[in-house]
Write a protein that binds this DNA or RNA. Structure first.
Length: 423
RNA sequence: GGAGAAAUGGCAGAGUGGUCGAAUGCGGCAGUCUUGAAAACUGUUGAGGGUCACACCUCCGGGGGUUCGAAUCCCUCUUUCUCCGCCA
C-alpha cells in the first residue's frame, strides 16, 4: 500500500510511472488526495470537539469535589450536545478513512524507473543469459515421460489421493527433491541467510500484510472452519515475522531463508503448458527474504540476483534473467527479475525464480519500521526471491541431464542424493 | 472439547471511576566522574494523527456499551496460562 504523503508529494511521478503498468491512475490519485484532505478536516473538527468536551468533564470533576453539584449539573447538559456532534463526526471520519483505505488497496506499487513499459510477458526484457543448452540424444523425452520411465514421480497416484496438480514423488525422485531442498538451504545459509521453519497456514492479518488479501484471496486455499489460508509462498509467513515491529537500524539488513510447500489454487489455468511439473497446486520452494534500509535495497536486490545466478551456475543449467515489464509486474512489486530455465525437451523457458523489491509497499501494510539515525521511525524495504522453486528445477534437471543410460545427477547434488544416476 | 485465571510501555510490574499516557524496577540513550571501562550519580526514553512549531486529539489485547468523565464498571470476541479430556 502506498503512503498518502508520498502520493501527495509525488503525484505526477506516480501517475507517469503507473503508465508502465498501462494504468491511468489520474483519477485514483486525485481521489486519494481529496479523501485525505477530507480526513484531515474532519479529524481536526472532531479533535476540537473532543478537546472541549474533555475540558468540561475536567471542570465537572472539580465542581463535584468542591461541592458545587448544581453548577456541575448545568455543565452536564452542555456536554450532551458535544457528544452528539462528536459521534456524528466520528462516523463521518470512519467512513472517510474506510473509503480512502479501500482506494489505496486498489493502487499497485509504483514501478521502478528501469521497469520497461509493456503489457504481456513478451515485453519483458532479457538482461542476461548463461549456460549451454545440451544437445540431447535421439528419443529424448519431456520430464513427465521420464518420470514415468524411471518411476520417480506418479501423477495419477496424486490424482487419486487428492486431484490434479498434487504429484507423488517416489524413490530417487523423492530423494532428489530432498537433496535439492537441502542444497538450496545450505547455499542460502552460507550466504548469510538464517534458516526458518515457518507455519504453512496463516491468518487474515498475515495475508493482508503481504498483499494477498483482500483482492487475491481466490489464489489461496482457505480453511473456512478456522479462517486460515494455506500459504502460496513462504513470503507470506516469512515477511509477517516483521509485522508490527520496529527494528533497530543496526539490525539491518536481515536475511532469512526457509523451505516450505506452497499451495496455489491456480483457478482457470489449464492446458498443454501445465503438463507434468510445469504448474502444480502443491509444490516445494526455498525462499530468501530480506529486510533492508531503503538506501541499500537495490544493492541488495542485485545481490540476490547474483546469489541465484551462482546456484544455477553450480547446477550447470541454462537460464536467462528477465526484467519484468510493467504489465507483468506483480501488484506489490516495484522491480522484479525473473529467472527462467531452458527446458530442452519441451523447447521452452520455465520460470524458476522471481526476485523482487517491494520497497515500502509491504512494510506500510505490515507497519515494519526501523529507528533511523535521527531516532525517527521509518518504513523499511522488503525483498524476496525464490532460491529456488523445486518442480521446474527438477523438470530442468531431468530433461537437460538425460542420457541414453539414465539421468545424470549434477555433481554438486551428488553428496546430497547419494547416487550419481537415475536409471 | 470442559472448568478456572489473566491480557498495561523493550521487559518486569503497580494502578479498580476524574489531575493516568500511566508509579516503580530493569534495560536503552545522553551527561558527570575516569587515561579508558565498570560502578555510582544526574537527566532522558512508547506509537499514531495534527501543526512552520506549539496547542490539541487518539491508543492500557480487538470491538461495542454505561457515565459529564473509563486502563479502572458491563457485554462480546481473540489470545495466553493452569487443571481435566484427547493426542503426533
Amino acid at each position: 500500500m502506498l503512503q498518502v504523503p508520498f502520493i501527495r508529494e509525488n503525484k505526477d511521478l506516480v501517475i507517469s510511472r503507473m503508465e508502465k503498468r498501462n494504468i491511468d491512475a489520474t483519477s485514483m490519485i486525485n481521489d486519494v488526495i481529496a479523501l485525505d484532505e477530507d480526513r484531515k478536516r474532519i479529524q481536526t473538527e472532531l479533535d476540537n470537539t473532543l478537546a472541549e468536551s474533555n475540558a468540561i468533564s475536567k471542570e465537572i470533576g472539580n465542581l463535584y469535589k468542591t461541592g458545587q453539584a448544581q453548577k456541575a449539573n448545568v455543565l452536564k447538559e452542555k456536554t450532551s450536545q458535544l457528544k452528539e456532534t462528536s459521534k456524528e463526526l466520528n462516523d463521518t471520519l470512519n467512513s472517510t478513512v474506510e473509503s480512502l483505505t479501500q482506494l489505496l488497496y486498489k493502487i499497485p506499487n509504483v514501478p521502478n524507473e528501469t521497469v520497461p513499459k509493456g503489457s504481456t510477458e513478451d515485453d519483458n526484457e532479457e538482461i542476461f543469459k548463461e549456460g549451454d543448452i545440451p544437445v540431447l540424444h535421439d528419443g529424448a523425452l519431456p520430464h513427465w515421460e521420464l518420470a514415468k520411465k524411471y518411476d520417480i514421480i506418479d501423477f495419477e497416484l496424486g490424482n487419486k489421493i487428492t486431484g490434479a496438480g498434487f504429484p507423488v514423488y517416489k524413490g530417487k525422485g523423492a530423494r532428489l527433491q530432498r537433496a535439492l531442498i537441502a542444497y538450496f538451504l545450505d547455499k542460502n545459509t552460507a550466504a548469510g541467510y538464517t534458516e526458518y521453519q515457518l507455519p504453512l497456514l496463516v491468518n487474515e492479518a498475515s495475508g493482508f500484510g503481504t498483499g494477498q488479501l483482500p483482492d487475491k484471496e481466490g489464489q489461496m486455499y482457505h480453511v473456512g472452519e478456522d479462517n486460515l489460508y494455506l500459504i502460496p509462498t513462504a513470503e507470506v509467513p516469512g515477511t509477517n515475522i516483521f509485522r508490527d515491529t520496529i527494528v533497530d537500524e543496526s539490525e539491518l539488513p536481515i536475511g532469512i531463508t526457509g523451505y516450505t510447500p506452497c499451495f496455489r489454487r491456480e483457478a482457470g489455468s489449464y492446458g498443454a503448458h501445465v503438463r507434468g511439473l510445469n504448474r502444480l497446486h502443491q509444490f516445494d520452494k526455498v525462499e530468501i527474504l530480506r529486510v533492508e534500509h531503503p538506501s541499500q535495497s537495490y544493492k541488495a536486490l542485485d545481490g540476490m540476483v547474483e546469489h541465484v545466478k551462482g546456484i544455477l551456475q553450480e547446477l550447470k543449467l541454462p537460464y536467462r534473467i528477465l526484467r519484468l515489464c510493467g504489465g507483468d509486474l506483480g501488484f506489490t512489486s516495484a522491480l522484479t527479475f525473473d529467472f527462467e530455465l531452458f527446458s530442452t525437451a519441451q523447447d521452452r523457458w520455465l520460470e524458476i525464480s522471481s526476485v523482487s523489491n517491494f520497497e515500502t509497499f509491504q512494510a506500510n501494510r505490515l507497519k515494519l519500521r526501523f529507528k533511523n539515525a535521527e531516532g525517527k521511525n521509518e518504513l523499511a524495504h522488503t525483498l524476496n526471491g525464490s532460491s529456488l522453486a523445486l518442480p521446474r528445477v527438477l523438470a530442468g534437471i531431468l530433461e537437460n541431464y538425460q542420457t541414453e543410460d539414465g539421468i545424470v545427477i549434477p555433481e554438486v547434488l551428488q553428496p546430497y542424493t547419494g547416487f550419481k544416476i537415475i536409471d
